[in-house]
């Protein structure tokens, strides 16, 4: 009996990646999103749902507890869930910021700002095809189209603002403490604690709108545009046809082990 270490095939694919055949006839599997980015995405999904539901309760308690106060801890639990989910999404944000420096070309800093003239023209073309239903006129991208990318960049900035305003309010309970010292500059800047509260509460509504449109367009991209949006955030990659041309990708430049490459 040969030792197990020798019988096992040498791992070419990192352990966390889907083991799918890379080439199917005309189709090649392209690796897009690193595992940290995908983990961040799904952790954020659960955090954002928790934060929106508990945040709306904290802003305007929509049901109450009867009887003695000593036998209930309703708002306390909602706030605990809110702070826990907030802590988790902050960790996800830290991972995302790290990945802006070490991720691949679709995940790095420059990818957040598709503001070249060509990209801006593509924003317009994508918008136009969304409104006219002319799929054949829509430019193709293996990564995010620039319109989608701008939406994600916006969500990153909104989340950053939520984190700053959130910690600013969190720090109020302990003046001179850690969070108050780091985020205490905000209330005087925007005109008081109530203004901070208003900003935090207003930006909350960005998330339900974003989630609705994002989920819809992702499913649409998967089913109608055949862009593999939903599967790539699960498996990390998607199949591309060698017959297609992409604005952000050339099949002939594709390295044999894409996950080892930082720059395509």
């Amino acid at each position: 009996m040969t030792p197990a270490t020798e019988s096992r095939p040498r791992r070419e694919i990192p352990w966390f990646e889907a083991r799918v055949p890379r080439v199917h006839g005309d189709f090649t599997w392209v690796y897009l999103w690193g595992a940290p980015l995908r983990v961040m995405h799904w952790v954020s999904v659960f955090s954002i749902i928790t934060l929106v539901v508990t945040g709306l309760y904290i802003g305007q308690p929509y049901f109450m507890a009867g009887g003695e106060a000593s036998s209930h801890f309703l708002m306390g639990r909602f706030r605990f869930a809110h702070f826990l989910a907030a802590a988790i999404i902050v960790m996800a944000a830290i991972v995302r910021v790290y990945w802006l420096f070490v991720g691949n070309v679709y995940e790095r800093w420059p990818a957040l700002f598709p503001v070249t003239p060509r990209n801006l023209r593509n924003v317009w073309l994508v918008l136009k095809s969304y409104f006219t239903m002319r799929l054949e006129k829509q430019p193709h991208f293996v990564g995010h189209n620039p319109l989608a990318q701008l939406a994600y960049t916006t969500i990153y900035f909104v989340t950053a603002a939520m984190i700053v305003t959130g910690f600013s309010m969190y720090g109020q309970a302990a003046p001179g403490g850690f969070f108050d010292t780091i985020f205490g500059w905000l209330p005087p800047l925007v005109g008081g604690l109530q203004r901070v509260r208003l900003i935090h509460h207003t930006l909350l509504w960005v998330y339900p709108m974003f989630v609705l449109i994002h989920v819809y367009l992702a499913i649409r991209a998967d089913s109608v545009e055949h862009a593999g949006g939903v599967s790539s955030i699960l498996t990390g990659g998607r199949f591309v046809s060698s017959h297609d041309t992409f604005e952000d990708f050339n099949i002939h430049d594709q390295p044999s082990e894409p996950w080892k490459s930082k720059h395509h």
Partner: peptide
Amino acid sequence: RIHDQCSRRAHFDAGQY
């Protein structure tokens, strides 16, 4: 904060408004 010293704080945490 007033909120952190308030005699009605127990009702806030309990969800009684």
